[in-house]
Design a protein around this nucleic acid. Structure first.
Lengths: 220, 220
DNA sequence: TGAATAGTGTCTTTCAGACAATATGCC
DNA sequence: GGCATATTGTCTGAAAGACACTATTCA
């Protein structure tokens, strides 16, 4: 390389969302080292020299949650020279949507604890992570509104009610049942998959997603 | 820094759009050094250790075009370990919209020539720049459709016809004059600014943009 | 009065959004 | 029958899109 300048470090930080207990939640880790020791932060780590940005994000995600094959999307890169007191660190941020079923989080390197926090009330965060989180939440809502990514948070087969509940949680807002069903069904993205008889009331129709996850479609 | 890994280099690349001769055009530079010597590329350069990503993009933009205060937006970061044969280079890409009036482009460091190419027929590009360009063009169209960024390509005062022409160029598609005017005027983003009498036909009404550049508004 | 471009209105169709009654299955 | 949830239709208002004629200025 002909470059004469010192190089910055590059990290990936991943805002990991899930739905748990009827709430939108975010995975945070408690830092075990300085700077910001004992502060909560968005999980992340350095990009290795031989891995792509997406590979780095996937690796970190698996280290934190044990999960692979979840929805993952690059958000934005933050590079203020003063954003990390240790020196020049540019971070490429990602957002992940994970299903909270069969999910075991574990504290990883340089971290004493990992916990799901309600998106509505996060603790004070290290670095510029509060800013990163705000950005991620905006993107999440945009993606829910205009694409099918939300369905990655549901099981393979689901009911219209489950979809509506998911949207009500993400937008912190209620929708009219009739209009919601009409809209979702009119989009031609669902396939009927029979009836769920494991309930003690009128059994609902089950659907699966026919379209691709991430397909652009105006949901609400 | 505690990091034990070697660090990647970080560059910014800027897809600079303008409208010239009724065409959407992109500024490309001809590389004067290896790799890809004599190939056309999207202008860019290394991020300095003490400048933010946006500062780096603005600096490069000024080096290439002499312009400041143009619309500039971060697009996406590309970091495939093999994207640059010289070694690990992560690039943070930006898009800029510049007004082609009073614009003097100049070849800068490591570049033998700079030229505006029609977006519809670019030459073969160095690195993964064809991919970056495709990404930028998608984003440009999205932003034109849903925000007021297009107006940054017009003079302070402009006619409805000029706006329509701009959109027809960007989308390579014609719009109905009546519906277009009806839509734009209904958005409450324009302010009437009198009449342009410097034409040899019915003089048109001039408008200025009342809303902020980048405001989210469904234009078409 | 012809050339050039500006400016404008109506109709139809589609869709979002407000709104409530009936259906099904289990106990 | 009572409980719980599922399912469905109508009306209204707003906006998109198809479509063509008149207005203004200058040469």
């Amino acid at each position: 390389m002909e470059e004469q300048y010192p190089k910055p470090s590059v990290t990936v930080d991943i805002v990991i969302f899930t739905i748990k207990d009827n709430e939108l939640r975010v995975l945070l880790v408690k830092r075990d080292i300085e700077p910001f020791k004992n502060k909560w932060a968005i999980p992340g780590g350095f990009v290795r020299i031989d891995e792509s940005l997406e590979q780095a994000a996937k690796r970190e995600l698996q280290e934190e949650t044990g999960l692979r094959d979840v929805y993952l999307e690059q958000l934005y890169s933050f590079g203020d020279p003063k954003r990390d007191p240790r020196g020049r660190v540019i971070t490429v941020t990602y957002m992940a949507l994970v299903n909270s079923d069969n999910l075991e989080i574990k504290a990883s390197t340089d971290v004493s604890e990992a916990r799901w926090f309600p998106a509505k009330k996060l603790p004070s965060l290290a670095f510029d992570h509060a800013h990163i989180f705000q950005y991620a939440l905006k993107r999440l809502r945009w993606k829910f509104e205009y694409t099918t990514v939300a369905f990655s948070l549901l099981p393979k087969k689901f009911t219209i009610s489950q979809v509506q509940k998911l949207y009500e949680i993400a937008f912190d807002k209620e929708f009219d049942k009739r209009n919601f069903a009409k809209k979702i069904l009119s989009l031609d993205i669902l396939k009927a998959e029979g009836i769920n008889r494991d309930v003690s009331h009128r059994p609902p129709m089950l659907y699966s997603l026919k379209a691709d996850i991430g397909k652009i479609v105006e949901i609400i």
